[in-house]
Computed example of a mutant assay.
Amino acid sequence: MTAPSDDSGDLWVFAYGSLMWRPGFEAVERRKARLVGAHRALCVYSFVHRGTPEKPGLVLGLDRGGNCRGIAYRVAADKREQTIAYLREREQVTMVYLEAWRQVWLDDDPRESVRALCYIVDRGHEQYAGQLSAAEQLHYCRQGHGRSGANRDYVIATVEELEAMGVRDRGLHLLAQQLKGN
């Protein structure tokens, strides 16, 4: 885990999965954003929120390479520390993510970028699934159910949010279609 940025002003948070549709914190601004150098991938076995160690689910992580379209939330300075504490409690239950500060580009003005808090998958963690086949992804997403609910619902809600943003992730969309068929 890294220390919070030395900036004591407003906090920007980059969301690429469930934080897009269920942030759980108060934001004063929500903008479409793009992170370069990492991509959204179903590459994390979920042992808590969408699965258990005995029956893991599969959730998204930011994995290295490519780029990712998501949401950048701006949090008021007076809510900064409270929001970071909340995110650590939510995202770092098993420490599968590395807390990092990255530049993200805001879609409303491609020349505008902000430094945002991101959660990048730790490839050395036991929950790092790497690149799984479509059949393996479907298996884990069908079986997964944890503290935050069914893995199936997580994938479908994420795809619905991406669609609302005008983003199509072919693999995730196909998976969501298969999961809706259940």
Rank of each mutant, 00 (worst) to 15 (best):
A3P: 09
D7Y: 04
D7T: 13
S8F: 02
D10K: 11
W12Q: 06
G17V: 02
S18V: 02
M20Q: 13
M20K: 12
R22Y: 01
G24R: 13
E26D: 14
A27K: 05
R40K: 12
R40Q: 01
R40A: 00
V44K: 10
S46R: 07
F47V: 13
F47P: 03
R69G: 00
G70L: 00
A77G: 08
D78K: 15
R80A: 04
Y86R: 15
L87K: 07
L98M: 12
A100K: 15
W101L: 09
R102E: 10
R102Y: 04
Q103C: 07
W105R: 12
L106N: 06
D107Q: 12
D109Q: 09
E112F: 07
A116T: 08
C118M: 03
V121H: 01
D122L: 02
H125S: 09
H125V: 04
H125P: 09
A129D: 02
A135C: 06
Q137C: 13
R142M: 07
R142L: 11
A150H: 12
A150V: 06
R152S: 05
V155Y: 00
A157F: 01
A157T: 10
E163F: 00
M165L: 15
R168C: 08
D169S: 13
D169K: 12
L172P: 07
L172I: 09
L179Y: 04
